[in-house]
Write a protein that binds this DNA or RNA. Structure first.
Length: 325
DNA sequence: CGTATTTGACCAGCGC
DNA sequence: GCGCTGGTCAAATACG
């Protein structure tokens, strides 16, 4: 799985020493970034900024799902093309929020209960009687499993499975309705770590990959441990690949503040020359927020504006609205 | 041979 | 109640 080491951004060396107070994706992923932080961000946005994103649920779930899909995970072709930065967006949702908003399934939290559920008697397996007992317990009470926080990264990349410094094991793949691209399900391979992630690719804009993380890592980033700072999540998902951010749940709202937390890098890191041609996230970010600037990036925007289905659409629209009051 | 991926089946939730 | 859909499991397979 670690085959795919894409990450165009590793080059930046951004996080290699992200000296700042801002958190890296990695931080976020392994929990350094307190969920509350995000919540706060959202709260702020809620109170201070306009709603740019409709609850995900307003659309049909399937559509959302349809919008994106993924394929090969393990790594197909890692296109480490420094010249082709990925643009990604981040979004998050909180447990409660998730449930409350009745958000859709793409990010749906219920994946948890599903996992809890005891499915599979499956052939061969001893599941039979166990299953029964399980069912019994299930029947007793289906205490809702607590939902894990989720963060979605909208990434513009040719690589489906973005290297984020953690090790993932693929445990499933499903075809996405209305999309030629499947959705892949991954689980952190670290023991006791329940973090999961879903990778989907927009079929309208196949260059966009949506990675949804669920839960927080309760361990150090393997890459970091190895001393390979370049493998930091941020490095992979890269700041320069940030496209936009959007909350996954209906209750959350976008905000500059929120985004700022994920798009800090630019502010504190000096970019390689080639980034002048391919401005990093912040650029894009500002672009998203201020469409009238950075013309040559409007392309990206347009892609995003395209009536996509699914999460992508939501995300995109959110931004669109935000931009155009 | 151990580990990771693929793939079909299973299950729960939701809408009708 | 039925069918659809998303999410997960685990046997089978692939890969090193």
């Amino acid at each position: 799985m670690p085959k795919s080491t894409n990450d165009p951004q590793t080059l930046n060396g951004f996080e290699s020493d992200h000296p700042n107070p801002f958190m890296s994706f990695t931080d976020c992923l392994h929990g350094s970034l307190d969920y509350n932080t995000l919540s706060k961000a959202f709260d702020m946005s809620c109170s201070s900024s306009e709603v740019i994103s409709p609850p995900l649920d307003h659309d049909n779930n399937s559509n959302k799902a349809a919008g994106v899909g993924d394929h090969s995970v393990g790594t197909t072709s890692t296109t480490e093309n420094p010249s082709t930065p990925n643009y990604s967006s981040i979004s998050s949702s909180s447990n409660e929020a998730a449930g409350a908003a009745g958000d859709d399934q793409v990010l749906d939290d219920d994946s948890d209960h599903k996992s809890m559920k005891n499915k599979q008697p499956k052939l061969g397996s001893d599941g039979d009687h166990e299953d029964k007992s399980k069912k019994g317990s299930k029947a007793k009470k289906k205490e809702k499993p607590q939902r894990e926080p989720r963060f979605a990264f909208l990434t513009k990349s040719e690589v489906d499975h973005l290297e984020d410094g953690y090790r993932w094991r693929k445990y499933g793949q499903k075809a996405v309705k209305n999309s030629p691209y499947p959705r892949s399900y991954y689980r952190c391979t670290t023991q006791k770590c329940i973090v999961k992630k879903r990778v989907e690719r927009s079929f309208q804009d196949p260059s966009i990959v949506i990675t949804t993380y669920e839960g927080q890592h309760n361990h150090q980033c393997p890459a970091t441990l190895r001393g390979n700072l370049n493998l930091n999540a941020v490095g992979m998902l890269s700041p320069n690949s940030l496209l936009a951010a959007a909350p996954l749940n209906g209750s959350a709202r976008y905000s500059h503040e929120f985004l700022a937390q994920f798009l800090p890098v630019n502010n504190q890191v000096e970019l390689p020359n080639h980034y002048h041609d391919h401005p990093p996230s912040s650029m894009l970010y500002s672009n998203l927020m201020n469409p009238h600037r950075h013309h040559h990036h409007q392309q990206q925007q347009q892609q995003l504006h395209a009536p996509d289905y699914g999460l992508l659409q939501d995300l995109v629209h959110s931004f669109s609205h935000k931009q155009e009051p």
